[in-house]
C-alpha cells in the first residue's frame, strides 16, 4: 500500500508540478479517460518517450468516456497554455473539431491518438486499427469452435469509434469468412458487473452458444466471471489486457484476446510531436499495431511488453 500511495503521490505531484516553463518543450496529452488500465498504459508509454526526448508532458482525461463536454473544457484549457504540441484522443470524432481548429490557428501541432478526428487538423493519428483487430478476434474465435455454430458478442458501448469499429470488425468478419457461424445476439454493457449479468442472460436465452466475444477489458472480465458462474462450456475471446483477463487466459476460461499496443500509442504521440517540431513530415495514420495473444505466446517478450496488469 505504501508503494501505491507513494506512486500516487508522485503522480499527483507530477501532474500539479508540471506547469510548463517557457524554456522547455511542453505537450499536454488529453486522453478519453485516465482511470482505466488502458489509459494508464498509454500514459506510461508517453512518459517514457517524454523522458527519452527531454520534453515535459501532462496527461489528462475526463472521468468517464461519456463526458465529451468535460474533455472539450480540458482541451480548451490546454490550448490556452500555449503548448508546443498537443496530443488528443477525441471522445467524439466530429464535435471537437472547432476547438482543435483554435489550436491549429495558433500554430500548435496536433497528434491524434486512439481514435481519429474527422478533419485534416491532426498531423497524424496514432491508433489501433480497431476493425482489423476485432476481425482478428473473430478469426481466433472461429478457429477455436471449428468454424461452425452459434456465437454472440458483448460490446462496451454503442456510440464510440472503438465500440463501433470492434462491433463492425467482428460481425463483418464472421459474416464474410465463416458462413457456418451464426451471430445470435449482440448486446452492450459498460462495466464488468453489468457485462457479467448481461452475458449470463444471453447464455440463458441461447444455451447452444459456442463462442463469445467481449470487446474491452471490462467486458472481458464480465465474460470470464459469467463463464465461471454459469459453468457454461463456451469459448471466450476478449480484448485488451489487464490481470483478470490474463489470468482467465492462463487458466483457460478465455482462450485468447487481442491486445492493442497502448504503450506504443503513448510513445507514438510524443515521438510524433517531437518529429513534427523538428520539421519532419508524418504519415496520415500510424498504426501502432495489435496482437492476438493466448496461453502459448503470453510470455513472449514482444507480447508481454505490451500487456498490462
Amino acid at each position: 500500500m505504501k508503494k501505491t500511495l507513494m506512486t500516487s503521490a508522485l503522480a499527483l505531484g507530477l501532474a500539479f508540478g508540471a506547469a510548463p516553463s517557457f524554456a522547455e518543450t511542453y505537450f499536454p496529452i488529453i486522453a478519453k479517460g485516465f482511470s482505466h488500465q488502458f489509459w494508464q498504459a498509454v500514459k506510461a508509454g508517453a512518459e517514457e518517450a517524454a523522458a527519452r526526448n527531454g520534453v515535459t508532458i501532462t496527461f489528462e482525461g475526463p472521468n468517464t468516456e461519456a463526458e465529451i463536454d468535460k474533455q472539450t473544457d480540458i482541451l480548451n484549457a490546454a490550448i490556452a497554455k500555449n503548448p508546443q504540441g498537443l496530443g488528443f484522443a477525441a471522445l467524439d470524432s466530429q464535435a471537437q473539431v472547432p476547438a482543435l481548429q483554435k489550436a491549429a490557428d495558433a500554430g500548435i501541432p496536433i497528434v491524434a491518438f486512439d481514435s481519429g478526428v474527422e478533419s485534416d487538423l491532426p498531423l497524424t493519428t496514432c491508433t489501433t486499427d480497431n476493425v482489423a483487430a476485432a476481425a482478428a478476434a473473430a478469426d481466433g474465435l472461429a478457429k477455436a469452435i471449428g468454424e461452425e455454430g452459434k456465437v454472440a458478442a458483448v460490446i462496451h458501448d454503442q456510440t464510440s469509434a472503438t465500440g463501433i469499429g470492434r462491433h463492425d470488425g467482428f460481425v463483418n468478419r464472421i459474416k464474410e469468412a465463416y458462413p457456418k457461424i451464426e451471430i445470435v445476439d449482440v448486446q452492450y454493457a459498460n462495466d464488468a458487473v453489468k457485462a457479467t449479468d448481461t452475458i449470463k442472460a444471453m447464455l440463458q436465452a441461447n444455451p447452444d452458444i459456442k463462442g463469445f466475444f467481449a470487446s474491452n477489458e471490462g467486458a472481458a472480465i464480465g465474460l470470464s466471471v459469467a463463464i465461471k458462474e454459469s459453468g457454461a462450456n463456451i469459448v471466450g475471446v476478449g480484448f485488451d489486457s489487464g490481470k483478470s483477463q490474463k489470468d482467465a487466459i492462463m487458466e483457460g476460461t478465455l482462450i485468447g484476446s487481442i491486445t492493442q499496443n497502448p504503450v506504443g500509442i503513448g510513445q507514438c504521440v510524443v515521438d510524433s510531436l517531437v518529429k513534427a517540431l523538428a520539421g519532419e513530415t508524418l504519415p496520415k495514420v500510424i498504426d501502432t499495431g495489435f496482437y492476438w495473444y493466448d496461453k502459448t505466446n503470453m510470455t513472449d517478450p514482444k507480447i508481454a511488453a505490451v500487456l498490462y496488469d
Binding site: S8, L12, F34, S35, Q37, V225, E229, K243, D247
Partner: peptide
Amino acid sequence: ARGLALVFSGAKPIYFNDTPSYSLLSP
C-alpha cells in the same frame, strides 16, 4: 469517494489472488 478509490488503488484494479477465501463473500 471516487477520487480516493482511484488514488488509493493507483487507478489500477487490485486483485484478490492471494486471498483465495475472498470468493466466500460472493460466488
